[in-house]
Amino acid sequence: MTTDSSPAFIDFEASSLDLIASYPIEVGVCLADSSLHSWLIQPHVLWSDWSDSAERIHGISRSTLEREGIPVHEVALQLNELLSGQVYCDAWTFDSFWLHRLFRAAKVLPAFQLESVSMLLDSSQVHQWSQTRHQVIEHLALPVHRAANDALILRETWWRLMQAPLANHADGA
Rank of each mutant, 00 (worst) to 15 (best):
Q78L: 10
S118M: 02
M119E: 07
P143K: 01
S116T: 14
Q78H: 06
N149G: 03
F97E: 01
R155S: 07
A151G: 14
A111S: 15
D95P: 04
N80E: 00
F97S: 01
C89N: 06
H134R: 15
Q125A: 15
L83Q: 04
E156G: 01
H127S: 14
E156N: 05
W92I: 14
S123L: 08
R104C: 07
Q135R: 15
H73E: 15
Q86K: 14
H139Y: 02
A141W: 01
L79R: 12
I137S: 03
T93F: 07
P143W: 00
S124H: 12
Q86Y: 05
Q78A: 13
H139K: 10
L77F: 12
R133K: 14
L114S: 07
L83K: 03
H145N: 11
E156P: 03
L120Q: 14
A106F: 01
A151D: 13
F94G: 01
P143I: 00
A141F: 02
A105M: 00
A76N: 11
L83P: 02
G85H: 07
A76Y: 13
R160W: 12
L99E: 06
F103H: 04
R104Y: 08
N80T: 02
C89E: 11
V75C: 05
H139V: 00
D95E: 08
E115Y: 14
Q78V: 01
Q125P: 08
Q135A: 15
V117Q: 06
L120N: 12
F112V: 00
S96C: 12
I153E: 15
